[in-house]
Every structure is written in C-alpha cells, then in structure tokens.
Simulated scan of single mutants.
Amino acid sequence: MTSTQQRTDQTDAADQTQAVGDILAVAREQVLEQGIGLSQQQVLQVLELSDDRLTDVLALAHDVRMRWCGPEVEVEGIISLKTGGCPEDCHFCSQSGLFASPVRSAWIDIPSLVEAAKQTAKTGATEFCIVAAVRGPDERLMSQVAAGIEAIRNEVDIQIACSLGMLDQEQVDQLKDMGVHRYNHNLETARSHFPNVVTTHSWEERWGTLRMIRDAGMEVCCGGILGMGETLEQRAEFAADLAALEPDEVPLNFLNPRPGTPFGDLEVLPAAEALKSVAAFRLALPRTILRFAGGREITLGDLGAEQGILGGINAVIVGNYLTTLGRPAENDLDLLDDLSMPIKALNDTI
C-alpha cells in the first residue's frame, strides 16, 4: 500500500468515525428541526451507538415525537376472530398449523367479538382491530368480518381496523365499503431477511396488499418484529423499507420466542438494544404513529414502557395480544396519566 493510499484510508476512517460521533447532532438538525427522517445508513449509525448513549438517543427521539406528533397517545385493543391453523410458515408464529405449537384452530362468535369491543372501548381505546390467522380471507371469513363490524357499530363507538392477511382488489374494496378505518399487514422484517423468516409467501406479496390498501384510501398499518436474527444492517434496511411505504402506523413487536416454532430457541433481544431500535425507528419516521406491540413485556419489563413512551413511542396496544399475555390495561393507562400523555380522542382519529 502506498503512503497516499494509506492517508486516504485513514481519512475515510476518520470521516466515518466523525460521522458516527455526530449522528445525533445531525439527527437533531435533520429530523427534529426539519422533519426529515434519517436515511438507512444514518439509522444504522444510531443502532451502532454504544449503550452509554442510550439516554441521549431516547431523549432526542422523544423530542422528535413531541415536535412532529404531539403528546397524544393512541390506544388500541385487538381480538382474534380466527385463531390458529394458519397454512403459512412464519417462523415466529405459534398460530401456524405447520408447527408443533400448543395453539389450536378456533373461531370467536359475534357476541364475544362485540363484548371484546365494548371492553376495549371502556379502557379509553379509540381503535379495535379484528385479526385472523390466515394467508388471506375466504368468503366465510369476509362474511364473519362484515357481520362483526355491523354488530360492533350498533353498540360501540370505536374505530375498527382489520388484519386478515393478503388481499385481492375485490376484498380491499369490500373492507373499504364496510367502513374499515385502518388495515394492518406487517412486512415483519427487512426484504433481505424475509426469506429466513417466511418461505410460503414473499415480501413482494405483502407489499402488493399494502399498496392496494393505500390506493383504496384506508390507513396503512405496517410494522414487524425485531430480534428475529436480523443484523443491525437489516434492521436499518427495515426502517428504510417502512419509510418508503409511508405507513400511517408502525407497530413494533419484539420477538417473544414461542415453543414449537422455528424461532422458539432464539434469545430475547437485550432491553438496551430494543430501546435503541425504538428511538432509531422514530428518527426514521418522525410523523408516524409508532406503536408498542407484542413482546415488550418480556423484552423491556415494566420500566421499558415508560422509557419507550419517553423515547419515541406514541401508541400502545392495551391488554393481551393474540396468543400471549400483555400488561393489564390499567397499568398502561395509569402510566400515561402519570406522564401527562393524553389519550388521543376518537374524533381525532376519524
């Protein structure tokens, strides 16, 4: 190596070190002041920060959330209309019929669905999401969803979202006509990592459903799960994928390894890494609803809820999840009250 090449390499290395060292200063100007989300490479620099910078990055993410989203927190409850027996092989999911997990196929009846919506509304939640463990809805499921939505609307003042897998255009139009406010369909992980997580359908198939939902005028809810063996580079890639989609809401889940699934033996994501990821996603998506979802209890514990809400989160799922237990709804609501974070009013979500 010549001396000139050596000096060039040293300069490049110094520039890179300087860039990493300044990433929070760059983010403060770019994201906080201008509202421009971090790029994929910039998100990676945040994810690579040492844990002793965690307080700084969470504080900046909180400032960004307050500046571009405000103090309101959107509260949502979810219920599984059809549980288990799914034909897909999502390696994290105990509802797959291909794995030896303890979850078995079951349907909930319409009165139980309405009661769940009522209980969700009593917590102050403004959103109720109907979920089904399917590749995509068949005629029977669409009929059940239509009946459930009608029954809920007759008794409960709450916005209704759905998560029913991949859709065709006719199904998108039907859900729109039913008055579905928001549709959830997670990309789950970075495009480059997706084949390691799911093999029975493609990332592109999921993307296609999301584009149809957006084009139909429904709100797009799309996030994923962190801690599924992805690299930091792939986590940054995932944030960039989501930024390109421009979803209205991003639910952030953390892997809660489920017995009997291919990912059942993976380690839980370290809390500091999880919180740093929350902040990084906020800096990539300054105006998006960023929701705490599954796995936060096992990953972060009780203190993690406060740290996340003061580190970029502005929405929560209250109560239990689809196949795992969450925190009691009262705990989250009391925390929001203690932090002076008002629940977003229903008329603000319409």
Rank of each mutant, 00 (worst) to 15 (best):
K122F: 08
A61H: 08
M142N: 04
C93G: 07
D109K: 03
E76D: 01
A146R: 14
I158Q: 06
F99T: 09
L54H: 12
P87A: 12
R140N: 12
S101N: 06
E127F: 07
F99K: 08
G136D: 02
E88K: 13
V57H: 13
V64E: 14
S96Y: 04
A151P: 10
E150M: 09
E155M: 09
D89S: 14
A117R: 02
G148R: 04
F128S: 10
E76S: 13
A125Y: 00
I108G: 02
D109Q: 03
R67G: 08
D138G: 06
S112L: 05
V73H: 00
E76Q: 11
K82N: 06
G124V: 09
G148Q: 04
G136M: 03
S80T: 12
P111M: 01
G84K: 09
E72Q: 14
V75Y: 06
S80W: 07
I152H: 04
E88H: 12
E74M: 15
T55G: 13
I149H: 01
S101T: 15
G70V: 12
D138S: 03
C90D: 05
C93S: 03
V64D: 14
I160Y: 08
A125R: 00
F128N: 07
E72I: 01
S94A: 15
L141M: 02
S143Q: 14
E74Y: 01
V75N: 07
V57S: 12
W68H: 15
A61R: 13
T120W: 09
E127Y: 10
S50K: 12
D63G: 05
F99M: 11
W68G: 11
S105K: 14
P111L: 02
P87E: 11
I79G: 02
L98H: 06
V73E: 02
S105W: 07
I78E: 06
L54C: 13
D51R: 07
P87R: 14
R135Q: 14
I79R: 07
V64S: 14
E150L: 06
V57K: 11
P102K: 02
C90M: 04
I110R: 05
G124H: 11
R67I: 08
A106E: 10
R153P: 09
S94Y: 08
Q95L: 02
A59R: 13
D138A: 01
D89I: 10
F99R: 09
T120G: 15
Q119V: 05
I110Y: 02
C90W: 04
P111I: 02
G77S: 08
N154M: 13
E115Y: 01
R53S: 11
L58S: 13
I78T: 11
I79P: 00
S94N: 11
L141F: 00
I160N: 05
G124I: 10
R153M: 06
I78N: 09
V131K: 04
S112D: 12
